[in-house]
């Protein structure tokens, strides 16, 4: 189910996904499934959880929101890892470096609020949050919103 480049080797996102400090509850969830798999899972009861790592920042804002919406229909819990906007002074160097390394697409992603922005536009509810890589990246645990539940 991993994304694979045409030559059969794992894509860079797959390799970097191994560096993400996933919480224990997330580690067995499918990672970066392809669209066809997500669509299949929307027809049944859905999976308990799905992981997406570094798959959102290369997309446009609308494309990323659509992808998240599809993934949220396919899985009850989403665990996402991607770029994050700075929230502390100490985050700034790493966030600026991440923006430089990921080029125009990364900077565009950060300019629209990074991973938190993406999740907000998809209307998902954050239930878990863990920055890493000196604040340049973030793991979010997300569920579909239900009334009366608390957003953190």
């Amino acid at each position: 189910m991993l994304e694979r480049a045409s030559h059969g080797k794992p894509a860079l996102s797959g390799l970097l996904a191994d560096c993400v400090p996933w919480p224990t509850a997330a580690r067995t969830a499918p990672l970066n499934p392809v669209r066809a798999s997500l669509e299949d899972w929307t027809h049944g009861p859905g999976l308990p959880a799905i992981r997406l790592a570094w798959t959102l920042y290369p997309r446009t804002a609308q494309d990323a929101a659509d992808w998240l919406t599809l993934a949220a229909r396919a899985g009850h819990m989403l665990w996402l890892a991607d770029l994050r906007a700075a929230e502390r002074n100490l985050d700034l160097p790493a966030v600026l470096l991440a923006g430089m390394l990921t080029g125009k697409r990364g900077r565009r992603f950060l300019a629209s609020g990074g991973l938190e922005g993406c999740a907000a536009r998809a209307g998902l509810r954050v239930v878990w949050r863990q920055p890493f890589w000196a604040g340049a990246a973030l793991v979010l645990g997300l569920t579909r919103p239900t009334s009366g539940n608390r957003q953190i």
């Binding site: 629209s112 609020g113 990074g114």
Partner: peptide, 16 residues
């Protein structure tokens, strides 16, 4: 907690 100035910019970007 967090630098609320920086966090504010993040919210403005997030909410466009």
């Amino acid at each position: 907690s967090r630098n609320h100035g920086l966090m504010g910019v993040g919210i403005l970007k997030r909410e466009q």
